[in-house]
Design a protein around this nucleic acid. Structure first.
Lengths: 182, 182
DNA sequence: CTGTAATTTCAGTATTTACTGAAATTACAG
DNA sequence: CTGTAATTTCAGTAAATACTGAAATTACAG
C-alpha cells in the first residue's frame, strides 16, 4: 500500500485480499484483482506494484495467474509501450468465469476420480458401502454442476428476470407441476 | 496411511485430501472427512489417527474443525468410553451444510463490507466508478445467495424432481412467462 | 475421592507457500 | 541491427500454516 489509494478503495482491496486467501487465490492476487476491477482505466504492472506496494516480480506473477484464470485481459494502449490489463465490465461475466474455472479445477477432477473408483468391483461390504456414498456424491455433484452450467448460459438480461422471479424455486416447481397438468 | 485401508478407499481419501487443500479445509482434515464419510460405522479419534497415520493431536484438532463446520457429529457408543464421530447419512445434507458454512464465512462478510462502503459518499469520479462496481457485485452476490438459500431449503425428494426437470432453466423461465400469460 | 483412560492444549519444529531482487529474456523504437 | 524499456524467471529468503510430542486437563469407572 504505497500510493494514492483512497480509504474507500483501499478498504475494498484489502477485504478482497483477505477473502482471496480463503479461496485458492492468494492475498496478493486478490488485492490485485480488486484494484483492477475497481478501476475504470486499465492498469499496467507498475501502477499495480506502486498502488499496492508489491515487488514488480510479484505483480508479474499475479498477472500471469489472473490471465490464466481469464479474469483479466491484456490490452495495448495507443502510444504506450507497456502492457495494460483490465477486467470485464460486467460483473456477471466475472462471476461466470469464476464459476467455470472453479468447476474445471475443483469439480471435474473429483468427478473423474469418483467415476474411476465406481468402476472397480467392491471387495467386501465395507467397500460396497463406500462405493454407494461415492455414487451418491457423484450424482449430486453432477446435478449441481449441470445446473450451474445452465445458469451460466444465461445473459445478464435473463438473469435479472430470474432474480425477479425471486426467491422461490419451490414455486417454480409447483408451476411446472401445474403447467404439465400433474 | 498406516493401516488397513483398501486401495479404493485410500484413493478416495487421498483425493479429497488434495481437494480439501484447494478449499479452506486443509489436506489432513479433508482426508479425515473422507474417511468418516466412507465409513458406515462411526469412528473414534484413534481409528482415524491409525488409519491415516496422523498424530493423535492432529486428529483432535481436525475433529474440532469438522465439528465447528457441523460436518460431523459426536456420539457415544454403548459400552465405549471413547467418543465416536460420524457424518450425515444423506450426502445432500452434507452439501447443504457446506454451502451454508461457506456462505457464512466467505459471502456474508463480503456483503457487509460492500454495504458499508456503499454508504460512503464518493469523493471523486474515481470513487463513483468504484462504488458502481461494488453495487453491481453486491446485487449479484445477494441474488445468487438468495437463490442457493432457496435451493438449500429443498429436501432430497424435491431435489430429485428439480434434477429431472433437468438442465434447462431457460425453459423454466419460458414456462413462467407462459403461465403468467406474458 | 482415586486412578486411569481419553482428550485437548500448546510450544516448538517442519513443511509449504508467498515474495523479493538480481539476472535473463523479450519486445520494440530508431 | 542496437540500445533501452518492459517483462519474466528463478534461486534464495521470509512468512504463514500444518503437524508433533509432551504436558495438562477432563471424564468417568470403581
Amino acid at each position: 500500500m504505497t500510493k494514492n489509494l483512497t480509504p474507500m478503495i483501499q478498504s475494498c482491496v484489502l477485504h478482497f485480499g483477505e477473502m482471496g486467501s480463503r479461496w485458492g487465490i492468494n492475498r496478493t492476487v486478490g488485492q490485485m484483482y480488486a484494484l483492477i476491477v475497481l478501476n475504470k482505466e486499465p492498469l499496467c504492472a507498475d501502477d499495480i506494484a506502486e498502488a499496492l506496494g508489491f515487488s514488480r516480480s510479484n505483480v508479474s506473477m499475479g498477472i500471469k495467474e489472473l490471465l490464466s484464470w481469464e479474469l483479466i485481459k491484456l490490452q495495448h494502449l495507443p502510444g504506450e509501450r507497456r502492457e495494460f490489463y483490465s477486467a470485464p465490465g460486467d460483473v456477471w461475466d466475472i462471476a461466470k468465469t469464476l464459476m467455470e474455472q472453479r468447476r474445471k479445477r475443483e469439480i471435474d477432477p473429483t468427478l473423474t476420480t469418483l467415476r474411476n473408483l465406481l468402476l472397480e468391483t467392491p471387495a467386501n461390504s465395507e467397500e460396497e458401502f463406500a462405493q454407494q456414498r461415492m455414487r451418491d456424491m457423484h450424482e449430486l455433484i453432477e446435478m449441481l454442476t449441470l445446473w450451474t452450467a445452465e445458469i451460466q448460459r444465461l445473459d445478464s438480461a435473463r438473469l435479472m428476470k430470474l432474480s425477479k422471479l425471486g426467491s422461490n424455486i419451490g414455486k417454480v416447481l409447483d408451476m411446472k407441476d401445474k403447467l404439465l397438468g400433474r
